[in-house]
Design a protein around this nucleic acid. Structure first.
Lengths: 199, 199
DNA sequence: GTCTATATAGAGATAGAC
DNA sequence: GTCTATCTCTATATAGAC
């Protein structure tokens, strides 16, 4: 705890920059962030942000990378647990619901938001976004297949296709429900979905 | 055809501006348009665009208004026809599929795209977006209810809730499928959806 | 209705001092 | 690692000639 000690205070600044950028994008879209707005929130000069993230593209790339890892970790915390498949599915949906219920305003999935503007993102970022989508669909497919085998979920056809359906649905529902300005629509959609596939 | 004749040539320019802006937004997002990019496509000077649309906000508002009317007209062209409910549903889904299949690149629903950035849109625009969503959900609910009564569609619960689910699903699927870079994912989701509710 | 020219503000980014 | 200062580019928007 002496010679190996890192200059560590920058970790905090770096994370604070990512935190503020993430929050803004989830609320206003990719165009909502600027070095200035981040500067105002983090209380650091614009130029200092460039020390941590040389370009805006790199900042967004890092943002997406972090978000993906963090979100998948939340999923993987229960996916191999002894919980029933329907419970796992409800937990999964709850992750989206919580984002939408954020106390600082209804937020949308970062990767759903940026996916809308995919054509204007750098290719490393696009790769991570793609991975985020396929990782989530794969997790959903696993839950679905497990439920079908256990007899707790019922559906016909490909689990992967239904996983893609549910993931698309959740991403879309966040955007649409936010316009309705309340959680009711999202909740009624969730209820309808579970009614369809729960045995 | 003389005294009442309008100065009419501007109609074309106006529409051309809207067309180009629409196409850009559906591909790159709201941030993709600037007076310059529109100027390049329409072959008109930046300042001239301001003659037709004094501010960017007004331009986007008009864009959303036009899109909504046009899209609903396409839906209403068959919604009260003697077609079966499942066929109507397939036709409805085809409207989204066609947008995604556009020859100038995979496009996303204009209102889905702008909904992602709802928090940074002007309030008249937000109102029209909200209407677009609720109008579509209402049309879907009508088709669903009709199919249930005719025995050609099967589902339990509220038709409005299922309509919201399907609409959210389609909006989300356009975004997610585009990242997968091909129509396969969208088609497999459509297939899966129809498998679930077709009798 | 479209043009040229310009005002003004904001963006991302860099240089170099501390 | 953070600062001040500045560069360059692009954005929206306006004034006024044609």
């Amino acid at each position: 705890m002496n010679t190996l000690k890192q200059k560590n205070s920058n970790k905090d600044t770096r994370e604070a920059i990512l935190d503020s950028a993430e929050s803004i994008i989830q609320t206003y879209g990719a165009n909502g962030i600027s070095y200035q707005t981040i500067s105002d929130i983090v209380q650091i000069r614009k130029a200092s942000i460039h020390y941590h993230f040389p370009t805006k593209e790199k900042l967004i790339e890092e943002l997406v990378r972090r978000y993906r890892l963090r979100f998948l970790a939340l999923v993987d915390a229960f996916i191999d647990s002894p919980l029933s498949a329907p419970t796992k599915l409800e937990r999964y949906i709850a992750l989206f619901e919580q984002t939408l219920e954020d106390k600082s305003g209804m937020k949308v999935c970062l990767c759903g938001m940026l996916g809308a503007e995919l054509a204007s993102m750098g290719s490393p970022t696009v790769k991570i976004l793609r991975n985020f989508y396929s990782d989530n669909i794969e997790r959903l497919a696993r839950i679905l297949e497990e439920g079908r085998e256990a007899g707790s979920l019922k559906f016909s056809g490909d689990a992967e296709a239904l996983g893609g359906l549910i993931f698309s649905l959740l991403e879309g529902a966040m955007i649409i429900a936010r316009a309705a300005d309340g959680m009711d629509q999202f909740r009624s959609i969730r209820k309808q979905l579970l009614k369809i596939i729960k045995v």
